[in-house]
């Protein structure tokens, strides 16, 4: 599981991203009460238009960071997926502290999104970047509590051990609050739906408002890749990862990842969106205490 793993991980990311594109189109069509075909075609038309579009630049941007931000976002997604085990001992990065590595990936996402919004040197992207930092940092705390809670029954910070600890019972049953909290973290990590404060429509695209042509397409692709990596992580931590009868481990993980992807797309399209200030209050005043209670409960159960 070394060199052969890279094409496999890339394939996994691409497959998941394609699934999200289809799910997004279906969800939009269902909400509009229309057939899904035209929506899907529209997505591909849009992507083709972006890819063949012209690259427009702003005045005095930080060009290197601007162009590299999608690559870094995608690299973080790949690093996040690399700690996910696809079978017993089948994780690309095996560390006794791999769940902390995932936490580092989450923290670096905030940095990358900020850089992406800061580097064009333009107002809307910068506002998007600030909003993202204001909401992204408080989201880190529930994320850490949730991950620590998941590590408690395993008595280890290794994702492999966390999967193995779910042989008897999945964490989603043992820690019912964990998955919903973690999904909120995921929405924030991938800038989707109610947590989309960086790239939102009310800022004309926010941190990617000045992106154009292939650069914007790359940013969207990196967001999809991060969504897939997050879903694989959520499936691993809460749904037992590769564990399952009959089918081989990687297939089980793929199925569970697809399930989480569906939940994420549904949350994107169904949950209401709050103004930033109210969301920040909500994150600190409601979500943080709730996640602390969750950790307390998880600790008591694990005892």
């Amino acid at each position: 599981m070394s060199l052969a793993a890279f094409p496999f991980l890339a394939f996994f990311l691409a497959l998941g991203a394609a699934l999200v594109v289809v799910l997004d189109a279906v969800a939009r069509a269902a909400l509009a009460g229309a057939p899904a075909g035209p929506y899907l075609a529209g997505t591909f038309r849009h992507a083709a238009m972006r890819l063949s579009g012209q690259l427009v630049t702003t005045e005095a941007p930080d060009r290197a960071n601007w162009r590299l931000a999608p690559a870094w976002y995608g690299a973080l997604a790949a690093a996040g997926l690399a700690v996910v085990p696809f079978g017993e001992g089948m994780a690309l990065i095996q560390l006794p502290t791999s769940i902390v590595l995932w936490g580092a990936v989450e923290a670096l996402v905030v940095v990358v999104v900020f850089l992406h919004g800061w580097s064009p040197n333009a107002p809307f992207p910068l506002i998007g970047a600030y909003r993202y930092v204001a909401t992204g940092l408080p989201v880190m705390l529930p994320s850490m509590f949730v991950l620590i809670g998941a590590a408690l029954p395993a008595r280890s910070l290794d994702v492999l051990a966390i999967v193995e600890s779910q042989r008897e019972m999945w964490n989603v049953v043992r820690q019912p609050l964990g998955l919903p909290l973690f999904l909120i973290v995921g929405l924030s990590l991938t800038l989707r739906g109610p947590m989309d404060y960086a790239d939102s429509a009310d800022l004309a695209g926010g941190s990617s408002a000045e992106d154009s042509g292939p650069a914007r397409a790359m940013w969207q692709a990196a967001r999809l890749a991060m969504l897939v990596a997050f879903s694989a992580m959520a499936a691993t931590v809460f749904l037992g990862g590769y564990l399952g009868p009959l089918l081989p481990g990687p297939l089980w993980l793929a199925l569970k990842t697809a399930l989480v992807l569906e939940l994420m797309v549904a949350a994107t399209h169904l949950l209401p969106r709050m103004p930033v200030s109210r969301m920040v209050t909500f994150l600190w005043v409601v979500l943080l205490p709730v996640s602390f209670l969750h950790l307390l409960a998880a600790g008591l159960v694990a005892l």
Binding site: L95, P96, T97, V100
Partner: peptide, 17 residues
């Protein structure tokens, strides 16, 4: 392994602030 990864994690947050 713990200190190394925790440094990355902590510094990412700290530098954002």
């Amino acid at each position: 392994p713990y200190i190394g990864v925790a440094t990355v994690f902590m510094m990412a947050v700290e530098m954002t602030v």
